[in-house]
Design a protein around this nucleic acid. Structure first.
Length: 156
DNA sequence: GCCAACGTTGGC
DNA sequence: GCCAACGTTGGC
């Protein structure tokens, strides 16, 4: 029996990479995560087929704009070794990579995005372990329980 | 191991 | 552009 899909939320700045960009390319390696906790979620928690809420951050109207899915197991982020990349990490060595990523596949664009303002209104029904709106949390990759996932999508 | 300084995130 | 909050760095 296949294990149940886990759910995640992944943030992206739409000026950098939006849900429309993902729709265009289909599958994208999620480069550039340089936070250990977020890395651990990708490396240790994600499995192919897991659901992903695609969140637009640092923009005029932040919120969940689409659905994606995890399209690979975790593997070393190649940009950590690329001296010309803005994600280059001089302390990372190929025989001992620091940063990992997964490929992310487009699933759908929400007809009506689930805006952060709306999510805040529903805070009580999401429980206090929802990291997106927990004060001071800036994780760009975070776990979402299936109850939270359903609650969020019901807000659409 | 402490902690000040610095850089980054991300909403507003 | 502001700035609160957090993570990381590096001197000691």
């Amino acid at each position: 029996m296949t294990p149940r899909r886990r759910c995640w939320l992944m943030k992206s700045e739409p000026e950098d990479f939006s849900i429309d960009d993902l729709a265009r390319v289909g599958v994208e390696p999620w480069t550039g995560v340089r936070n250990y906790q977020a890395r651990n979620f990708m490396r240790d928690g994600m499995r192919e087929g897991d659901r992903v809420l695609f969140y637009h951050s640092n923009c005029n109207v932040p919120g969940i704009y689409g659905i994606a899915e995890v399209a690979s197991a975790a593997y070393p982020d190649p940009t950590q070794f690329d001296g010309r990349s803005k994600y280059f990490d001089p302390k990372a060595r190929p025989e001992e990579p620091r940063w990992f990523l997964v490929d992310v596949r487009y699933v759908e664009t929400l007809e009506r995005p689930i805006l952060l303002s709306r999510i805040r209104e529903a805070e009580a029904s999401l429980g206090d372990d929802f990291a997106l709106i927990r004060r001071g949390t800036r994780l760009s990759v975070l776990p979402v329980s299936s109850a939270q996932y359903n609650t969020l999508l019901a807000l659409e």
